[in-house]
Each structure stands twice: as C-alpha cells, then as structure tokens.
Design a protein around this nucleic acid. Sequence first.
DNA 1: TTGTAGGCGTTATCAT
DNA 2: ATGATAACGCCTACAA
Lengths: 313, 313
Amino acid sequence: MSGVSVATVSRVLNEPSLVSETTRARVLEHVRALDYIPNAAARTLVRRRSQLVGVVVNTGVEHPDLKHPFFQDVLVGLKDAVGSHEYDLLLFSTGESFLRRALRHQVDGLVLMGVDRNDADLHALLVREVPVVAVDLDVAGPRAGYVMSDNVTGARLAVAHLAGRGHERIATITGLLNTRPGADRLRGYEQELAARGLPLPPEYVREGDFYPASGDAELRALLALPEPPTAVFAASDDIALGALQALAEARRELAIVGFDDAELAAIVSLTTIRQDKTALGAAAGAALVAMIEDDAAPPALVLPVELVVRETA
Amino acid sequence: MSGVSVATVSRVLNEPSLVSETTRARVLEHVRALDYIPNAAARTLVRRRSQLVGVVVNTGVEHPDLKHPFFQDVLVGLKDAVGSHEYDLLLFSTGESFLRRALRHQVDGLVLMGVDRNDADLHALLVREVPVVAVDLDVAGPRAGYVMSDNVTGARLAVAHLAGRGHERIATITGLLNTRPGADRLRGYEQELAARGLPLPPEYVREGDFYPASGDAELRALLALPEPPTAVFAASDDIALGALQALAEARRELAIVGFDDAELAAIVSLTTIRQDKTALGAAAGAALVAMIEDDAAPPALVLPVELVVRETA
DNA sequence: TTGTAGGCGTTATCAT
DNA sequence: ATGATAACGCCTACAA
C-alpha cells in the first residue's frame, strides 16, 4: 500500500464521496498502476451479496435443456438486463439440486426457465427469501413472480386470422399441456372458436410437445381424419415446421399459423404469432433486480404478442 | 455446533477418511438436520479456487451475442462436461472487460466463443496463467488452446459431393472470412476444386457472414451472373436457408450444400456437413478441466465432420 | 477525513 | 483422531 490504509482504498472504490479529493486521486492512480481488481469472493463473504443471478434452464428429459432456441433469446435479454446492473449470470449445471447450488453461491436472485411445475426444488424455493422470477411458469410467493407472453390472446389472434380467411374447420396441434403456455394456447384456441360459433370436434385437438416431430406426426393424423381440417393452429413454430414438412410430403395444402416467430419462421414464410423473447428475458431481469435492490413486489407480467402474416395462412 | 469443532466438520465434508467412523456419522446427521450448505465464497477465498468456469460469448456487433444457435449447442455440451466435475458456468454479461470479470471472480478457467481474433482482452488473457479454451478460434499460449471442427475437410466433402453429382460450376457463399471457420471453409472449397481441376472464377466466391440474409443476397447475385453456377456450397446452414428462399422466390433450381446440420436442416431436407456442436462444447470443457486439475497441456483439437445427404443436392 | 480492528465462513497448519 | 487458530481479501463500525 503506497501511502494510505486499506480502509481508505475500500472507501475510494465504494464511497468515493467520503474521501478527500487529493487522496482519492492518489489512490486511484495506484489502483490503475497495479491493475487492482477487487476480489469477488471476499466481497461476497462480507457483504452477503454476490452480484450473481442464478439461471436454471430445463426443457424436460427428452430434449436436453437449453436446446430450445426460445430460451436462448430469453437468455440474451436477461443477460443484458442484469448486466447493466452489475450482475453476472450463474448457469447451473444440471444434476445437483439447483436450490442447493443457489444457496451455496449466495445468488442474489434466481431466474427459472422451463422448470416443471412439480419440480422437487420449486416448492422449497418459493418459501425462501431469495427473489425468484420464472419465465412461462406462474409461480407465486412472497418473493417469487413470473413473466410470460399473452398466450391466450396470441392463440385467439391466430384462430381469428384463420377464421377471417374463411376457414371453418380449424384444428390445433398443442404444446405440452402441463406447461402454462401449452395450456393457455389451447385455451385461447377454444375460446376463439367458441366465440365465433365454430365447431370444435375433439379429434381436432392433437396433443404435441412443442417440437417438430410432434408437428409432423399430428398433422398426418389430422390428414387421415374422415373430415380433415382446412387450417391448423400450431402451438409453436417448431410444430408448424414439422407440420409443413408433413404437408409437403403428402402433397397437401393447409393453412397453418405458428407461435413464436422464431428465426426460421421468416425463412419459410410462416404466418405466426410473435412473442418478444428477448423482451421476456429483459423483463425478468429488470423485475428481479428491482426485487433485489428496491425490495419491489414480485412481478406478474404478461407481455403482448402480435400476429405476423406471411404466406402459410 | 453440536459436539465437535469446526475443523472436524470441514474434514468430514472434504476428507472423510481423516475422521473416525462414529464422529463422522454424528456430524453428517447434524449436517442433514440443519440442511447445512457450505459457503462457496468463503471456500473460494481460502482455496483460491472458485469451481467456476467463465464463458464469453460474442457473435459480433450486428448480431447480439448468443443469438446464434451454434453457440447454444456448444454451451449444452460445455455445461455437461464441466458440470460432471463440479464446476458451474459463469456467463459474463458483455460490457466490462471479460478479463477483469474473470479475474475478479477468480474463475478457474475460461471458454471463449465467437471472440474476435483482435479482441482487446484476448492478448492480455493469453499471457496470463488462467487456463483458456477457445472454440473456433486458434489461440495458443502456455495455458491456452482451442477446439474446432475440421472445417477444411468439411468444405472439401461438400464440394466433392457436388462434383460427384456431376456439377462443374460450383460457387460458394462464404462465412465471415476473418474467422477461422469462415476462412477454412473457403480454403477447403478452393482446395477441392483445384484437386479436381474444376474452374474457380472469382465471381463464384461470394462473401457472406454466416447469416441467412447474406445467403439470400449473394445467391441473387450468383443468379444474375452471365454464367450462373449449377451448385453452391454455403458456409453455413443459415446461409443455405437464405439461399433456398431466394431460389424459391426466383423459381430457379440449384444444388445446395450447407454446413452445420442445424435443426432446421433436417426440416427443409438440406444436404449439409454435420459438425457435432455439443461434442465441441464437451471437448472444450473436458480439456479445460484437464488443464485446471491435472495441469494438462492446452488442447489443439480438430473434430471430425460428416456429410449428410438429403434432398437439396 | 482517515486509521484501527473485528468479522464474514471456510480451510489448513500445527498441536495435542 | 481431533481441537485451536491463523489466514483468505474485503467492508464497516468505531475511534481518532
């Protein structure tokens, strides 16, 4: 230490106003010269704050987590949002309980993506004091909230668009129905059909899982029906893509609307419902930081979606 | 503390063999009862090891980092590989120098993805003692190595396939040529053409940037040539997709081979060169852990690729 | 305005 | 086999 005490250096770095102009300058000079970098572990230890946000990403057992492009976009928004507040992201490796990992690292907050409603850790987490924001999962707790897109309205927009084009036999290939988005998109589909007095035969509701393979398989099932639909609302772009492929192979035509507006949607000219995935992540990050730093209330955000008309419907 | 000293508890958790059977059992019982979880910060402080691997992801200014699906798949492999060795991933938010962030958090190692060869931090990083593994960037240093796919061979396979189908006028839409994969794929293309004595007019080399828009634009340019090619090697599936779209709009036919085998490649039946992205991440993680724990030599891995024949060529 | 000193939770050294 | 105890690097009363 060239000149002053460690306490003063600490003040220069954290509360510069407490230090006289001159000494401050002198200290900063040495800080630069030595390329001094504060040690995060030591700081975390004494402050009991890590400036870390834990991220949990799961998309079910069959599809390795993180693989779905949706989460990637959300992650980008999240990273930017928390990054601007000096937080870094801690990506937990699957395996050990993420609750334990979060506690061990003293993360200041947690973002959950693709976590199952019945996850063993989830309940234990919600009653804790650590701030949590879930994406696409309607958790609630004293310090736990969520952000998601307006899936019901999105589905209604899709069906309304199809109906507006004159379709009366509109089927749907759903996402995983035990997820909130999957259930909500089905609900919106049903609501809009009902509102318009259009028929809804049970065999027009095909249960998929958000992934292309289910789109392919369920569309074939629809085509094989005695009275096939003339239009399909797919609960994800991936499903729509699989369906489109099945359609091409069968040399059949059907109107299709997807959900997400993934990058490939534009490429294959898929009409779809756009959800702003990056904004979802950003909202999650902002809400989390607000909970951490300003003790804000847990969020319960529903972000708007919009219809993007292209060529498939 | 119900019974023994803190030192003993520490031993039970870290070197159980040093503790007698009976006390060990007693301590573990209390550990469970209290749901005791060791504090990572304190441990990092004294051990000077954080069990953290820093991850840097950049894909250039125009396209926000992390957006490219390629990195996502790599990340999955990386997470699994380091996770099985008790490491978690620290995803640095862009902005502050990742070198400083790495030092501050005392990460045990660093994985670089999409980092520019001329990045300001890169040089400073390579001369440090912290282990580094870069993906798709040929860095070298006492503790720095890399992993990448065999891009040259991949490009040659693509061109060879096209030539085998009887094509003699084969063009290419390249990736970013200041990246190693971009340059290597162009090199492979040139090599294979030369080896077969096929012509290589300069206007057949169109410079793209790995993204769909460049595929679309450059394919149009190729079609406008006085003597258009009959086949195109696209340096990425994204480029191929853009090109396919341009082709469809122009109502023209051309053989196309892509590179990556992205998820959508199968969907649009794109013939492509498959690189195992997850394996790339896993290799990076394994090599990094080996450097950290066994003081292994820095890797210089080139992973094999394979041709996947589908319908576009 | 600045320095002193105790403590954050853990590990590791040295005794016992 | 176990217990004291000194670090690890930093922050924050409290004193001066």
